[in-house]
Design a binder for these strands. Structure first.
Lengths: 178, 178
DNA sequence: CGATTTTTTGATTGCTGTCAATTTGGGTGG
DNA sequence: CCACCCAAATTGACAGCAATCAAAAAATCG
């Protein structure tokens, strides 16, 4: 089990022919490998320089014995991840490309370095990673970004940083009310 | 929190315009509402006659104090659900209609009444529910069923019961190797 | 057994994927 | 510091899978 100290990590699954689904992006503070023993059948890779804190299974067990409250906290985290997973299933199963990208942008964590950055979000991942997270192709992601840009909803500061100019319109688009 | 004693339950989320994504089907033995306190923002309904066992939050807490091992068990369950959710994200984001239906059929629990039923599976849910679970329309689900039927992979015993005639071919189809 | 809902089947549309060509950006070495 | 190179991203043309619209068939229910 790992705890991310800094940086970003992607968790994903593959099909035999190479199709990839990224099931989540993890950031500082998040845990990787909540599985308690069995084989979990997913992969994880850093998408930028990252530092992790590793727990051995034996150490983990000792820690639990020593501080049972830790297990409650982990259960709560797992529950939150489960809720996030359900949201992502709704996105993948029922939302259009525009709605997916809008939802994605709204769920990105605000830059922790500049908390009052007012709509400025960092995109440490590539377009390909965004596409594999949203169940789309890079071309479609790119087209939606362009559309949001020309309609004034967002502004691309750089390839990996953008500003949400109209959060309410973006929120409406995310729920199919645009 | 509830524990299903018998029957089947669907868990789902809705978009404002009515689009529905069923995030899971639960059967006897499964838990509903693993959330430890907060609002979870999903709905659950029985899809056939079902009996549940309810736990109040206070009772739950008392139970945990009395048997801390229970919390470990719940964490493990949540972890399994998380793994299942990741599989479903792969399905919704990257699989074709044929692959989705094939995967769905393989993941159905075998009839517990007749354990040696050899490929006989029960479909307590309607086509509409299957469609909303797989991110498809009822028409597409129906067409795939027909295709699997004419190719001899499955046989429809009745609308809500079918036999998997060629499990290996179905498994190959599920992973895009058909 | 008739009415109504569910499922299946058919015809057509359309959103997103695929294929392809630029354009942009990042990184490296001169 | 700049020019070059390669990878990533954008943009365009077209195709295809699944959605939509529509109708027939089957199943459920009173």
């Amino acid at each position: 089990m790992f705890n991310i100290t800094s940086g970003s990590v992607r968790v994903y699954k593959l099909l035999p022919d190479g199709r990839r689904q990224i099931t989540g992006f993890l950031f500082a503070g998040d845990f990787v490998g909540l599985a308690t023993g069995e084989d979990y059948a997913f992969s994880a890779e850093a998408i930028e320089d990252a530092t992790l804190c590793r727990f051995r299974k034996s150490d983990y067990r000792a820690l639990i014995r020593q501080a049972p409250a830790l297990e409650s906290a982990l259960l709560e985290r797992a529950t939150h991840e489960l809720a996030a997973a359900q949201n992502q299933m709704l996105l993948l199963g029922r939302k259009t490309a525009l709605e997916r990208v809008a939802s994605f942008l709204l769920n990105l964590p605000e830059d922790p370095v500049r908390p009052a950055s007012d709509g400025l979000v960092r995109l440490p991942m590539t377009r390909a990673e965004i596409a594999d997270y949203l169940g789309l192709t890079i071309e479609t992601v790119s087209r939606v970004f362009s559309r949001l840009k020309t309609t004034g909803v967002i502004r691309l500061v750089s390839l990996h940083e953008l500003r949400i100019e109209q959060p309410d319109r973006l929120a409406a688009l995310a729920e199919g009310e645009g």
